[in-house]
Computed example of a mutant assay.
Amino acid sequence: MPTEGPAEGPTEAPAVGVVLAGGLARRMGGGDKTMRTIAGRPILDLIVERLRPQCDALILNANGDPTRFAGFGLPVIADSVADFPGPLAGVLAALDWTAENLPGNDWVVSVAGDCPFLPRDLVARLQQARREEGAELAVAASNERTHPVIGLWDVRLRHALRQALVEEEIRKIDRWTARYRVAAVSWPTDPIDPFFNVNTVDDWDEAERAAASVLN
């Protein structure tokens, strides 16, 4: 995007990226939103292109048959908490996967599976804000509002998150993150909000119109 800096490679603090695609996409008639196309390409393909260079590893959180994503070459991890409790379950699954498979990585960056225009400096700026503000977590923002699903998570908080999900039945991200110091990082929204998410058919049409000037 013209408002972004150059593409960023892995940051000083290793981070694993997770695309959260565990939702039911009811407003889009069901199915996998990540597999719907924009400019002839699946949304997931656009996300991977932007996020993979910023992370040490990239995984996909999705429920159901993982083979439907085989063409993307990503590890697919399902929620470890039953009954689709929301994006926090996907974050927990990613934290657990990272602790088990990449124990030297203390950070996970989560993104929504319906955001095709993610900034190429997402991870670097979240990490920088966390360090500078002495925060425990970081979250993306634009247009004067935060996007709780797009954030930086400390792997060491996975046990606390599991307790909140299972024992306290917390589902809203903001309710859980309010317990910690959170740095918010804002991005410009010209020519389009980089965290624009495709939730409805109208959103899909808007994304198609914007794609020519945003994608490269």
Rank of each mutant, 00 (worst) to 15 (best):
D190M: 04
A207C: 08
E208K: 09
D190V: 01
E208C: 01
P194V: 00
S213T: 14
E206T: 07
W187A: 12
F196L: 09
N197S: 13
D202V: 14
D203V: 00
W204S: 09
D203L: 00
P191A: 09
A212G: 15
T189D: 10
D193P: 05
D202A: 13
A178M: 09
T189V: 14
D205F: 03
W204P: 03
A184W: 01
A178C: 10
V185I: 00
T189A: 15
D205P: 00
A207Y: 08
D190F: 02
W204I: 00
T200P: 07
I192H: 05
V214Q: 08
F196M: 06
P194A: 05
R179D: 04
W187M: 05
F196P: 01
I192A: 08
V185F: 07
P194Y: 02
T200S: 15
V182N: 08
S186L: 00
D190I: 00
R209V: 12
A210N: 11
D202E: 09
A211G: 09
R181W: 00
E208H: 13
A211W: 03
D202S: 12
T200L: 02
A211Y: 03
I192F: 04
D193M: 06
E208G: 06
D205L: 12
S186T: 13
A210M: 11
A207W: 05
Y180Q: 03
N197K: 14
A212W: 04
R181N: 09
P188C: 07
R179N: 14
A184G: 06
V201Y: 10
E206F: 02
I192Y: 02
P194S: 10
S213H: 14
N199M: 02
V201R: 15
T200I: 06
W187D: 02
R181F: 01
F195E: 01
A211V: 03
E206Q: 14
F195P: 09
W204N: 03
N199C: 02
D203Y: 02
A184Y: 01
D203C: 09
T200W: 04
I192P: 00
T189Y: 03
A178L: 07
A211D: 01
E208Q: 15
N197P: 01
D193I: 06
R209C: 07
W187N: 07
F195D: 01
A207G: 09
D203Q: 10
W187F: 15
A178F: 02
N197L: 00
E206D: 15
Y180W: 13
R181K: 15
I192D: 06
P191I: 04
A211T: 04
W187P: 03
A212P: 08
T189R: 11
V185R: 13
R209Y: 02
T189L: 01
N197C: 04
F196S: 05
A211I: 05
V214N: 05
S186D: 13
R181S: 14
D205Q: 13
V185L: 07
S213Q: 14
P194T: 05
T200Y: 03
D193S: 14
A178T: 10
R181T: 05
A211L: 06
S213R: 15
D193L: 04
V182P: 03
Y180G: 02
V198I: 13
S186E: 14
N197I: 00
A183I: 09
A212D: 14
R179M: 06
T189M: 06
P188L: 11
A184D: 11
D203K: 06
W204G: 06
N197D: 10
